[in-house]
Design a protein around this nucleic acid. Structure first.
Lengths: 147, 147
DNA sequence: ATCTTGACAAGAATAATTCTTATTTGATAA
DNA sequence: TTATCAAATAAGAATTATTCTTGTCAAGAT
């Protein structure tokens, strides 16, 4: 498979439109975990009439087809990951920066814990503080506790 | 420690008010991963003048003190977990039901991958389809693909 | 008694996402 | 090539979750 071609595997039978092609092009090979709004802003630069509903619809269609992973790693918004290889994430709890972790941990759920679920996958989040935020914390401006 | 007493460990120095006590009482021992709105609805049944801002403020105060985990396991809203023991989750991708997984997997990030982050924790999500949703899917009403 | 600080209610404001509706388009088959 | 029709679109209204603002209040400190 050619690099940047992976999403094509999930678009068979989808009606191809200029809008969708622009969205796919933006997503192909994108490792930044963009939000719907990131996609919308990037694509509407070239297609000024692009509607945010179109972006949401296309992302949801791709998600259902398995071409995108919807990540719940940001409490403020959904993030989408077009990286076809299953992987995990390291997240800075201060600035919410996200780093891919390409390690397969092979965690498994014992049958008695799976509670008759049909298991389809897993995702590990590591939490930490990134070097930049550690630096900032060290130089004094630590946030107060208001409790 | 008495069962249902765990949150008390994080409230030292917090000004105690009837509203906060009602919120704490609702959270103590709650294994349902309630959202802010769940807390608000439950507590305002007894305190009709409760403001949603008070709920959000109290939850955020507890979170900062380590008494609550803010879970990003639901793309629609934040969920809060007052269970003080670190644990993982099994999530139905159809109905979003959440089941606690009390297994310690001891996943670790190699130093070269940690990228100078100071690692503070991790969380594993298992994805699957729960028995009820499997049942529904088998009996015919499978959702169409709109792509 | 007054001051200070944190907590409060009420609701406005914001931000992300979904929904609605009329219109247009791409894929299919005639 | 053209007609057809389901699906996709634009535009913006609506919804939902969350945060912010403002004025008030209460408890402890001075």
């Amino acid at each position: 498979m050619k690099a940047g071609d992976s999403l094509k595997h999930f678009t068979a039978g989808m009606k191809m439109t200029p809008q969708r092609m622009a969205i796919l092009e933006f997503l192909e090979g994108n490792l930044d975990h963009p939000s719907a709004d990131d996609v919308y802003r990037a694509v509407s630069a070239r297609y000024p009439t692009m509607s945010c509903a179109t972006v949401y619809n296309t992302l949801e269609t791709l998600r259902k087809r398995g071409g995108l992973l919807e990540l719940s790693i940001d409490p403020l918004r959904k993030r989408f990951d077009p990286n076809p290889k299953p992987h995990n994430h390291l997240i800075c709890t201060v600035c919410r920066k996200i780093v891919d972790v390409h390690i397969d941990y092979r965690v498994e759920l014992p049958a008695e814990t799976a509670a008759d679920f049909e298991i389809t996958g897993n995702h590990i989040e590591f939490y930490g503080v990134c070097p930049e935020c550690k630096q900032k914390a060290a130089t004094g401006n630590r946030p107060e506790d208001n409790g």
